[in-house]
Write a protein that binds this DNA or RNA. Structure first.
Ligand SMILES: [Zn+2]
Length: 323
DNA sequence: CGACTTTGACCGGCGC
DNA sequence: GCGCCGGTCAAAGTCG
């Protein structure tokens, strides 16, 4: 019992929340701590079976009751275009080219070679194969290791567990998390034919941080318009998003699937406009020549992530706003 | 009444 | 093989 628990604690990064050290993920993590992050990445990622995230994003929102912290998720959903063929998102030949900084991550790189399973997951999500015959059916053959689509974990400092991201979700499960007194909720997109799932839990260390893990890509547009917290400007108007309140999106984003994880620290995402008075960052790619370790179709597939990633990641702290 | 949540049971993988 | 555990199902319950 205890031993088990201890083991869990040791590999607290099992899924998502436990991965982070509260000391590191403080409200204002200075750029000088980047090295510390690298150390974290060095953890044996292969330990957690299918929980290999591709991106993390730490949304350092002000968890003031006044503002709705879900704003960032709103533009998340809206910024990410729907996918037509999710299976092609992850080429099986997307092996790592650069030497991984973590020797253990070798096994992680092999996680993206099961792209075929993605389609099965999507198909199985349909309700046609849900007769009252058996209790729980096995959508995927046992042969398949149940490889899932890439996941994106977004950490948001908020008191609200279920953040409104513009999509309709149906809660289909809830489990207790040992690392955290807060439970983990399982949601699934209610749109027919869309097998996107997401998990919502709280960080083990910092309970104020909500970790929302998205799995898969929506095959449709956002069914509902986000509430007044966010205004999405159509392309005809502007290629940027507008946020009413201050979304201090001090972000940390790193790629986990590839060999070398990168950090992304940016005050405001480029595609959104803070307070609708700041400069409206255009959607075109920045002049920075970001070179991911691999072609990474997954990066461009993730739409929004693509926007986030090539910003000014890598160890390029230079002087991003002192203070 | 429809959409969504709650909640216990179940399944499959994994360690012992 | 057994038990633990993460993930999932689905009937019952809740809400507007
Ligand atoms: Zn969807």
């Amino acid at each position: 019992m205890e031993k088990k628990f201890e083991e869990e604690s040791r590999m607290g990064f099992d899924d998502s929340a436990g991965f982070y050290s509260p000391a590191v993920f403080s409200d204002d993590f200075p750029s000088s701590n980047f090295d510390s992050f690298s150390s974290i990445f060095d953890m044996p990622c292969d330990a957690h079976k299918a929980s290999n995230f591709d991106f993390y994003y730490y949304n350092n929102n002000n968890s003031n009751s006044n503002n709705n912290p879900s704003s960032f998720f709103d533009l998340l959903s809206t910024a990410a275009p729907p996918l037509s063929s999710p299976a092609s998102t992850v080429p099986e030949s997307s092996e790592v080219v650069n030497a991984p900084t973590t020797p253990n991550s070798s096994s992680v790189s092999s996680s993206s070679n099961e792209a075929a399973a993605i389609e099965e997951v999507n198909n199985s999500t349909t309700t046609h194969d849900k007769p009252s015959a058996s209790k729980v059916l096995k959508p995927i053959k046992k042969n398949q290791k149940k490889q899932r689509e890439p996941r994106f974990a977004f950490m948001t400092k908020s008191d609200i567990d279920h953040l409104d991201d513009g999509y309709r979700w149906r809660k289909y499960g809830q489990k207790a998390v040992k690392n955290s007194p807060y439970p983990r909720s399982y949601y699934r997109c209610t749109t027919a034919g869309c097998g996107v799932k997401k998990r919502v839990e709280r960080s083990s260390g910092d309970h104020t941080i909500v970790v929302t893990t998205y799995e898969g890509q929506h095959t449709h547009q956002s069914p509902i318009m986000p509430r007044g917290s966010l205004r999405v400007l159509p392309e005809s108007t502007n290629n940027s998003l507008t946020v009413d309140h201050d979304t201090t999106a001090t972000g940390l984003l790193f790629q986990h699937n590839t060999s070398q994880p990168f950090m992304y620290i940016a005050p405001p995402p480029p595609f959104l406009t803070i307070n609708s008075s700041s400069v409206a960052a255009s959607h075109n790619p920045p002049p920075i020549s970001f070179q991911p370790p691999s072609p990474q179709a997954s990066v461009r597939d993730h739409g929004l992530l693509q926007d986030l990633v090539p910003l000014q990641m890598r160890k390029e702290p230079k002087d991003e706003q002192n203070g």
